[in-house]
Design a binder for these strands. Structure first.
Ligand code: ZN
Ligand code: ZN
Ligand code: ZN
Ligand code: ZN
Lengths: 165, 165
DNA sequence: AGCTGATTGATATAATATATCATCTCAAAG
DNA sequence: CTTTGAGATGATATATTATATCAATCAGCT
């Protein structure tokens, strides 16, 4: 990520923000990560990420499948899930377990513990990293003598844009 | 809940703890809540909660269905999901979206924001309420101008019992 | 060209969850 | 005691999400 600028769009960017910039950042980052790691960013994988990068909204796997079917031959579910697994492994797509949906990440240098803010009306997802929470969880874990492997934090509600509309 | 003692079993209780106490607390609390609210705690609902209250582990809906089939006529999936929806609405069962599983709550006076600690080996779930986190989330929400409706916090890992075994 | 491992295609199926309408039950009203 | 009506359950079908398996293809290397 050295010479790739950050995607500086804020959480829940304005509806008229320059999303082309977000979009190309998402795709270029994936390209670069694949090159660095010597793995292949195949057309199918590109296509799935391109669909997700079209907005900051999350999409279900079968929604993605439908959109792929619009431009090319309809893929099988397995193909979609394979591409999603690849992109999640690469760290450029996240899965929202609350609604079985996937979205393109716009943050670099994730800590282990992120918050995902999901607008129930428009479906847009924002990511934050609270240092307070990042500190609190290991403390709780220590008290419980619990060895943490994975943290899911999803907050559902309404974003400013939808509330004021 | 006035005269029902708290379920004082700690998070991740020892394997030899007096679970009969947990179990009867879970069932009596549900009974009492139904009486207070004038709603019916039918045999099917009791049976689902009895199955969940048999341990602190979470179970999938179809696991519950199988256990019901052992003692009575095999119910339909819809019957299981209806009972689970009822018990969740009552607040005595929670759903873990990370693994589509359900477990019997052992805490009263939930705040809005709980942490669910899920052991990947034994499946036991513990609940905590961190005041630090309960304060942090509204602050983040305010910054984002986000109106929070629901918070999911699930931490997967290994409990002490499983780590030391 | 031939080899090898990664990727994709094809097919089937698993796992989780809901929709719909008919029937039954129970408690309250008459 | 009967009626009645809302809530609960049964029955059936189907929707939604995800994975397993094996064959075919492709890309990069020798
Ligand atoms: Zn954007
Ligand atoms: Zn991210
Ligand atoms: Zn117990
Ligand atoms: Zn609880």
């Amino acid at each position: 990520m050295a010479h790739l600028p950050r995607c500086d769009s804020p959480p829940f960017p304005a509806v008229d923000h320059d999303h082309g910039r977000c979009r190309s950042w998402i795709l270029q980052r994936a390209e670069q990560l694949c090159q660095q790691q010597g793995i292949r960013f195949t057309p199918q994988r590109q296509q799935v990420l391109a669909i997700l990068s079209a907005s900051h909204r999350s999409l279900g796997a079968y929604d993605i499948l439908e959109r792929m079917a619009e431009s090319t031959r309809r893929p099988t579910p397995a193909a979609v899930y394979r591409a999603l697994a690849f992109l999640m492994e690469l760290g450029v797509v996240h899965r929202m377990s609350g609604n079985n949906a996937y979205f393109a990440c716009t943050r670099t240098n994730h800590q282990h513990i992120m918050q995902f803010w999901i607008c129930r009306r428009c479906g847009v997802v924002a990511e934050t990293e609270s240092s307070t929470i990042a500190q609190a969880i290991p403390l709780l874990a220590e008290t419980l003598e619990f060895q943490t492997a994975w943290v899911t934090m999803e907050i559902e509600g309404e974003c400013r844009t939808c509330r004021t509309a």
